[in-house]
């Protein structure tokens, strides 16, 4: 079987798997961004309780493996009465894990805004909420974009693990094809290339574009 034949035969399956991977990535990214914003802001709180809660969350999710978290959410949570469908369990695990890493980026991004900006806003009597929303966050956002690009690639890679709880993503399809054909180089190799194209062909250019837009918008160009 030539590689062309291989693609002709298994292309549709691989395409389906890729769509699932993209869906997992988008949903997990949405969740990760939400969690990162909340936990990141909580980490800047003066309240010990709020700060502590966010710290525990971040340390637990960064201190253990994504795979362990995924299995725990899928196999153990049902024992607590919370059964998640495998597709849902997949992106929730990935989103919660990467959200913990993202929280530190949010915190770091906000702290990277120079002290003078906070002081100038204070001197203008701005309320903390307005200060954060109108002065600090727009600047923090731009600072955060490059590391978020890397984080989203990690997130895409992380979604490959959902195959292990039988979500039919790209990784899952590649394994299935390998099991049927024993054409390992073709099956796994093609999947690797598709992941690479998603990372460097979609995520990286998108983040660059976003950075360019924000830079122009913030007048730094």
């Amino acid at each position: 079987m030539t590689f062309i034949e291989f693609l002709k035969t298994y292309g549709p399956q691989l395409a389906n798997g890729s769509v699932t991977t993209v869906m997992q990535t988008l949903l997990a990214a949405g969740l990760a961004i939400l969690i990162a914003l909340i936990a990141g802001l909580m980490r800047l709180s003066h309240s010990r309780l709020i700060y502590g809660a966010a710290t525990v969350y971040i340390e637990v999710f960064r201190g253990t493996s994504l795979l362990v978290q995924l299995y725990w959410i899928f196999f153990v949570l049902p024992l607590f009465g919370l059964s998640l469908e495998k597709f849902t369990a997949g992106f929730i695990a990935v989103g919660m894990n990467l959200g913990a890493y993202g929280a530190e980026l949010v915190r770091g991004g906000i702290l990277s805004v120079p002290k003078g900006q906070w002081e100038a806003a204070t001197a203008l009597s701005m309320s903390p909420a307005k200060m954060m929303r109108r002065i600090i966050f727009p600047q923090a956002f731009l600072n955060m974009l490059p590391p978020w690009g890397n984080l989203l690639i990690e997130l895409l890679k992380g979604t490959a693990l959902v195959a292990l709880i039988s979500v039919a993503d790209l990784m899952f399809v590649a394994r299935k094809i390998n099991g049927v054909t024993y054409l390992s180089a073709q099956a796994f190799g093609t999947a690797l290339i598709i992941y690479y194209l998603m990372s460097r062909g979609l995520i990286t250019p998108f983040m660059r574009w976003l950075e360019g837009v924000m830079t122009r918008k913030l007048g730094k160009a």
């Binding site: 895409l156 890679k157 693990l161 195959a163 590649a174 390992s184 796994f188 190799g189 992941y195």
Partner: peptide, 13 residues
Amino acid sequence: FIRSTPLVLQIFF
């Protein structure tokens, strides 16, 4: 390439 693709897939490969 290595950095952009999943480790678990590389292990299988």
